[in-house]
């Protein structure tokens, strides 16, 4: 078996990792649904807190949905590596012949498919709740699809650093949320800009730039962090 793994190429290893994590996620469906329900509940609380005036909700909507998406994906990050850490799979990944960063990237892609994409697909529903128009909802969906992978990528560094640390979940939020600020600004900002009639090309290109930058740097940083945590 080890021979066959050694002979697989980089892309095949990546694909195997994605398939494995997707299978695991499907077996533990409740984890995915918990994140989604957190997202819905968090957004629902806002109108109850600030009042049902539709104008107010419409102006707050994109920001509220983005902050809730940020918190939801942060919550899901604490379990990103913990299962593999506890059952020893992570150590196998570290000593595998493939670069750890590629395997990490596979895990992150699966994580995005099971949290980022469902969050984005749910957002139109919440957008309607907050009184957004259909064009705005489309922009919101687009920014969430572009922004949530960045959240998974940056968040994985924190998830790797807090592996097996007491109070890991709350510590993770302290480490990671400040780093999410640029994504929040341009994600929610794009919808605001669209509402006021400003071109959103700048926002989208910057979100794309963040995505490319974090695609290159975050898996490397995460694999360094994983090695530190496993020492």
């Amino acid at each position: 078996m080890s021979e066959s793994i050694k002979n697989t190429g980089l892309f095949a290893a990546f694909r195997l990792m994605v398939a494995r994590d997707l299978t695991l996620a499907m077996r533990r469906r409740t984890d995915v649904f918990t994140t989604l329900f957190f997202f819905i509940i968090a957004v629902t609380l806002f109108p109850l807190g600030v009042g049902p005036e539709i104008e107010l909700l419409r102006s707050m909507g994109p920001g509220v949905i983005w902050v809730a998406a940020l918190l939801a994906s942060m919550l899901s990050l604490s379990t990103l590596f913990s299962g593999d850490y506890e059952d020893g799979t992570l150590e196998q990944m570290v000593i595998a012949p493939h670069p750890l960063s590629v395997l990490v990237l596979g895990k992150l892609f699966a994580h995005w498919l099971t949290t980022g994409v469902p969050l984005a697909l749910l957002s139109p529903l919440l957008g309607m709740q907050m009184g957004l128009g259909s064009a705005e909802i489309q922009v919101l969906l687009l920014t969430l699809l572009l922004g949530t992978p960045v959240l998974s990528l940056i968040g994985s560094i924190g998830a790797a650093l807090t592996l097996g640390v007491r109070g890991g979940g709350i510590l993770l939020s302290l480490l990671i949320l400040p780093l999410f600020i640029p994504v929040l600004i341009f994600g929610a900002g794009a919808v605001d800009a669209f509402t006021t009639g400003v071109s959103i090309d700048g926002h989208l290109s910057l979100l794309g730039a963040f995505l490319v930058l974090s695609l290159v740097l975050a898996p490397l940083a995460t694999s360094v962090a994983l090695r530190i945590s496993l020492e």
């Binding site: 560094i157 924190g158 650093l161 807090t162 640390v165 007491r166 109070g167 890991g168 510590l171 302290l174 480490l175 940083a221 360094v224 962090a225 530190i228 945590s229 020492e231």
Partner: peptide, 19 residues
């Protein structure tokens, strides 16, 4: 917070250094 949450001093300083 990260530095003080990890008990092993070597791991604590390396993890916090990366952060």
């Amino acid at each position: 917070a990260l530095r003080s949450a990890i008990d092993d001093p070597r791991r604590a300083s390396k993890a916090s250094a990366l952060l």
